[in-house]
Every structure is written in C-alpha cells, then in structure tokens.
Amino acid sequence: MATESGSSSRVQKTTSSDGAVGSARTTRTDTGASSSGAVTLVSMDGDGFVVEASAIEVSKLLKAMVDGPTENAAKEIPLTNMRSNVVAKVVEFCQHHQTDPMTDIPKPVQFGKTVGDHVQEWYSTFVKALKDEMLFEMLLAANYLDLSPLLELCAATVGLRAMNKTPEEIQREFNIKEPFSPEVERTLRQENKWSTEPPIGS
C-alpha cells in the first residue's frame, strides 16, 4: 500500500488486521483518542481512517452521515465498498480540498488543454499518480460519496484520454472490444465523418 504513505500526517491509519473483513471489524479504532470533530472511515478491508469531520464535508454523502441525528453512529462510517487505498486517497483529497479547494474544470475541456491547465498543481499530480483501475475506482468512489470535485477531476482525466483520438485509438486506449457490425459501422462512420477526418491538428 505504497500509496498511503503519501497521506497527510493527520491521517492515522489505525489498527487493522490483515485477516478477514469480519475480524477486522472487531478491531475497532479507538475513536476516543481523536478530537470531537473526528470521524473514522472504515474501508472494506477493515482499516480505519480518522479524519476531521470538517474535511469530509465536501462529500455530500459523508456530510449527511456526519450531520445525522444520531451522533454516535456517525463517528464511524463504514465504507464497505472501498478498498483501503481508495479510502486513503479520498481522505487525502478531502484534506487537501479543505485547505485549497479545487478550481472548476470547464466543460468541455478546450482542445489542447490538459487537466493540469485548469486545476492546481497538487490536484494534477494527485490524479496523475492514480493508475488505471485506481482511477476508475476513485471515480466510482467519488460518485458514491457524492464528492463532486473528485468526480470532476477523475472524469476529466479519463475523458481527456479519449480526446483527439480516432475511434480506433479510443478502442485501444480503453481496450474496448465491442465491434459494430460492418454495416452499422459504415453508416456510423459516414455520419461522423466530420469528426474523424481530417485528424485534428494535422
């Protein structure tokens, strides 16, 4: 879990068992140790991440849970569908977002621009560090947590991979093997001829 080493020092990875999830659940984080505004996010691996409540307010889902009527229950939020490294990244993102909110990415991203041109450097390095499936998992996590800046960031990153690419290149890029029937493809190409030729930038 090399990715977690980059987390801010405020995140303490609490006790965790490397065993099954079931046993992990039993080794609770000592939430009493943290400040009153802290909550613990528990990943599906059983790892707990202590984070300040104010930091995760950017996620509408987490905010709703934290602000919930039963305060005790909200102290520990199980995220059973996210792996530890995803939660760590999310926490990292939230904490940075608290200090330096991400600038908006215009839609559509203008041709020739990259994500880095629109957001602060920290965010562009953050998203660059996400590899492949991790990126998609972050995307899903952001969607689930209703964490719009992160969603925006990841979506733009994925989207730009398809930018300025021919359909074939897009297929290669995303390893899509779902060919059209020849006739449909022909029609499609004819209809979209304007977009496929001439190549942009030629």
Binding site: P108, V109, S195
Partner: peptide, 26 residues
C-alpha cells in the same frame, strides 16, 4: 451517468469520435 460525466469533458469532435468507438460509448 458517469460515462456522461466523462464524455462531457470532450469537445464536439471528441464526442463524435467517441461515439464511433463502440456501442456502449455510442
């Protein structure tokens, strides 16, 4: 919804091309 979110970053041409790539994207 998320696919839309992703494709929403594309410009006109990019969107047109993405539509040619595969059924799901189309």
């Amino acid at each position: 919804a998320m696919l839309s979110e992703i494709l929403g970053n594309l410009d006109v041409k990019g969107l047109g091309r993405a539509g040619c790539a595969c059924r799901g994207l189309r």
